[in-house]
Design a protein around this nucleic acid. Structure first.
Length: 440
RNA sequence: CGGGGCGUAGCGCAGCCUGGUAGCGCAUCUGCUUUGGGAGCAGAGGGUCGCAGGUUCAAAUCCUGCCGCCCCGACCA
């Protein structure tokens, strides 16, 4: 993409409303525009990141055996009356009415709807297990939205719903998502720690919040430092291996980790001081098992091997992509701007032509732009008539992993400069070696 | 919803107290000079001063009501 033809409205100054660093940088890097309290437009650069995040989520959900669907944002109140949540949900739910005066709502979550889909089609235990997920916009009319897309009213959520014949199978479904989540966050360059979470009225131990540590996080968290060195489950993990998955989950839940709501001072005190970690964190995922809470009232039942009807055991599993964007920025930035992890960077390379109009730098940039693009790299080519300083500052701000700097000085020796955004390291490489260096 | 703050050019702000021609910086446009870390000079464009009433000869400024946004708290992916 040529920057001269792109839409990247970066800001030199920070808009007043932005308090935390990720919000400031998302506005300055031209990623989002707030349209109303807690409601945002996603501009090209921000949308690219969001889509990268979604792509990773999809790959890992699919790998773990979930099937993608897409349910609507607008739902009928009918289903919610069936589950009893239409009355229970309160003001957080945006209630609307259509022209026929029917009660509708903008979905804050989809348990009812997915349960309705399930009960329509699935009758036999032989069709289980089943896990359906979608990535869709949700709306929760938060009392106070804040921190940009970190806590917005309209937000994107990946929500998966599992259906199983009994609790044991449901635990396996839970473990599949648990492991998928560990892989998902690790691929985004995040160290996510599963922490004990509130299970609400359902109870039990099957609920975890996935937390990443960040000084500006909203939650106070306490855990064993050992988690920071844990190994991510492998790509070839066998998700049908019940015992194997259980062992992985057991290992990841053996040590202490809890948010302030579930914090147990005594248990925390038992950890050696050197291993205690008390910090702030951002919740990026939440999984839980809720049994027959919806299948009972909504009559989602299957016939079991015994010939009798059984309400299905369900769980739901959420990840907030539109929250992950700022979460990743909170975890990865410096004074100058964002530092995107390679896997979710909106482009791989910023190609800076320091002297557009100079036949040598123009030719070198065109060659690199074509060559890197052909090799599968997304290149943002800064071909604007701007001074070098402005290009450097802009490139650092938007935080692409690599900067390939083409200026007359180094080009006189047939070289270009390659700068790694994360470390600031620069090296001069021959024009023809640029691609090889990227691959290395 | 309680407490606090703010709405003046795309962004950041001054002006308001003490009513009298709407300003500054950045950005934008034109020209010239510059060209390896957000250039210099000269010129130009851009405003329902959040909205609606009121007071006054006269309101960005004073009064009343409303709307929007931000921050702190209780609540949430």
């Amino acid at each position: 993409m040529r920057l001269s033809r792109y839409f990247l409205p970066t800001l030199r100054e920070t808009p007043r409303e932005a308090e935390i660093v990720s919000h400031r940088l998302m506005l300055r890097a031209g990623m989002v525009r707030q349209q109303s309290a807690g409601i945002f437009s996603w501009l090209p650069l921000g949308l690219r990141v969001l889509n990268k995040i979604n792509a990773i989520i999809r790959e890992e959900q699919n790998r773990a055996g979930a099937a993608e669907i897409l349910m609507p944002t607008i739902q009928s109140a009918e289903l919610w009356r069936e589950s009893g949540r239409y009355e229970a949900y309160g003001k957080e739910m945006l209630r609307i009415r259509d022209r026929h005066e029917r009660d509708m709502l903008f979905g804050p979550t989809n348990e009812e709807m997915v349960t309705d889909i399930f009960r329509t089609y699935v009758r036999s235990y032989k069709d289980l297990p089943l896990n359906l997920y979608h990535i869709q916009w949700k709306f929760r009319d938060e009392i106070r939205p804040r921190f940009g897309t970190m806590r917005s009213r309209e937000f994107l959520m990946k929500d998966a719903y599992s259906f199983d014949i009994d609790k044991d199978s449901a635990r396996h479904a839970y473990n599949r998502m648990f492991v998928a989540y560990l892989r998902t966050f690790a691929r985004m360059g995040l160290q996510a720690i599963p922490m004990q979470a509130d299970t609400g009225p359902i109870g039990g131990d099957l609920s975890h919040e996935f937390i990443i540590l960040a000084s500006t996080g909203e939650s106070e968290v306490f855990c064993d430092k050992a988690y920071l060195g844990f190994e991510t489950p492998a790509e070839n993990t066998d998700f049908e291996d019940r015992a194997g998955l259980q062992a992985t989950v057991d290992a990841w839940t053996a040590r202490y980790a809890a948010t302030s709501e579930k914090h147990d001072e005594a248990a925390f005190a038992a950890i050696p001081d050197a291993d205690k970690l008390s910090a702030r964190g951002i919740e990026v995922g939440h999984i839980f098992y809720f049994g027959t809470k919806y299948s009972d009232p909504m009559k989602a039942v299957v016939t079991g091997p015994d010939g009798k009807e059984h309400p299905v055991h369900m769980g739901s599993y959420g990840i907030g992509p539109s929250r992950l964007v700022p979460a990743i920025i909170e975890a990865s930035h410096d004074e100058a701007g964002v530092i995107w992890p390679d896997a979710i960077a909106p482009f791989h390379v910023a190609l800076l032509n320091l002297k557009p109009g100079d036949s040598a730098t123009d030719a070198a940039c065109e060659k690199l732009y074509a060559e890197l693009g052909a090799a599968g790299y997304d290149v943002l080519y800064d071909d604007r008539e701007e001074r070098p300083g402005a290009k450097f500052a802009n490139a650092d701000l938007i935080g692409l992993p690599w900067q390939v700097i083409v200026g007359p000085k180094s080009l006189a020796d047939g070289k270009v400069e390659m700068k790694r955004r994360a470390t600031g390291e620069r090296e001069l490489v021959a024009l023809d070696d640029c691609l090889a260096r990227l691959k290395a």
